[in-house]
Each structure stands twice: as C-alpha cells, then as structure tokens.
C-alpha cells in the first residue's frame, strides 16, 4: 500500500497527466482529421464510378489488414529509410492514425449513406422539395444520427490504440508510467500495480464518457 505514495511523490502525477495530454493530443488531432477526411472518403465511395470504387476498396482493405503497429513502423522508420523523410514520432503517429481512421470512418459514412432508403429521397422530391432541401432536411440528419454512435465508438478505439506509439519513442501516458516504475524499481517494487492502475483509470475517464454518450444517442435515435 505504501507504494501508492509513488504516484503522489515529486511531480509524478503531474507527469502522468502530461502523458495523458500527449495521448489525447495525438488522439484528437487524428480523430478530427479522420472525421473530415472520412466523410469525404465515404462520399467518394458512394459515387458510382468503378475505378474510384476499386481504388477506395483496395485502400480500405489494405489499411484494415495491416496492424496499426506495422503502419507506425512503416511511417517512422520506413519513410526515413526509403525516402529520407524524417518525421517525428508524434507526427508519424498522427499520420498513421489519420490514414487508418479515414479508412474506418469512410466505411462508416458510406454504410450510413447507403442505409437511407431510396424512398426517403423520393418522398422528399415528391413533395416538391429541391435537391438541397432533401439532403439538408431529410438525408443528412438521418445519416448523422446513424453515424454519431459509430463514430464515437471508433474514436474510443483510436484513443486506446495510441498506446502503441510508445514503440516509436513517443513519450505519452503509458511511457511516463513505465519511466516512473523504472525509476522506483528498488524503493517501491510494487509501484507498477498502482501506476498501471492509475493509467487504467485515466484511460477509462477519457473513453467512458464517450461510450456513455454513444449509448445514449443510440437509444434515443433508433
């Protein structure tokens, strides 16, 4: 129990919270960019163009089958080796998560768009509404309602996955935790439990409100 004190010793807690800030910074930059690019990508996938569809499909499947860790190594080490492009760990991380998030988000947008029945469009047009009105008042509100719970779910997955960036040398929450544990190995051998416990709690605090909102929206809108 006395090892719990490690958490409050010196600037440890402050450092952990800074680590959380790095985690959230990478996550939110990636999520925001993925949502924007994903919407564009999703709309492109619904266009009836064979070539575009094939390209999108290949991109989507490729990004999905590759583990995010492999993508991270490719961006961080591979780009340097092959093209002499030197990205910082954090930049590579955001790049990879945007590439991945865009693919996943795009697929969600695509499925939400095509799930609106043809007759919803027809009913709108049959009432004399313009194309813009049909989209703004009928199609988009329904698409967004279907999308938001799914997008929040994806966002929590992305936050969790950022813990992989430790492996390309980015010091985020998990790494800070490991540093604290290492530094106190002899004085507080059981600190690991408390530090990881604290990290668990912080991840939980970051993700739980989001899944709560997702669940609530889903119940309200379906």
């Amino acid at each position: 129990m006395q090892d719990l004190g490690i958490l409050l010793e010196g600037r440890n807690l402050e450092r952990l919270l800074y680590g959380l800030w790095v985690t959230l910074r990478i996550s939110f930059a990636s999520i925001a960019a993925s949502i924007i690019c994903g919407i564009i990508f999703g709309v492109i996938m619904t266009l009836r163009n064979r070539v575009l569809q094939a390209v999108c499909r290949i991109y989507l499947e490729l990004v999905r089958v590759l583990p995010q860790l492999v993508l991270l190594f490719l961006a961080y080490f591979g780009l340097t080796r092959a093209f002499n492009i030197n990205l910082s760990g954090e930049t590579s991380a955001v790049l990879v998560f945007v590439v991945w998030g865009t693919a996943e988000m795009g697929d969600l947008v695509r499925s939400a768009l095509i799930s609106i029945p043809r007759h919803q469009y027809d009913s709108g047009y049959a009432l004399g509404l313009s194309k813009a009105d049909v989209y703004m008042s009928i199609i988009l509100p329904q698409t967004v309602r279907r999308l938001i719970p799914l997008a929040i779910n994806l966002a929590t997955r992305m936050i969790k996955t950022t813990s992989l960036v430790v492996l390309i040398g980015v010091v985020e929450m998990l790494k800070v935790g490991q540093q604290i544990i290492e530094a106190n190995r002899y004085t507080a051998p059981r600190a690991a439990l408390w530090i990881y416990g604290a990290i668990f709690a912080l991840y939980f605090l970051a993700c739980f409100p989001m899944s709560l909102i997702a669940g609530r929206l889903e119940r309200r809108w379906t």
Binding site: H119, Q120, D122, S123
Partner: peptide
C-alpha cells in the same frame, strides 16, 4: 407510396 416513408 406503399411504404409510407414518413421522415423518421
């Protein structure tokens, strides 16, 4: 229409 299609 047959399937009413109110805006849900």
């Amino acid at each position: 229409f047959q399937s009413y299609e109110l805006f849900p």
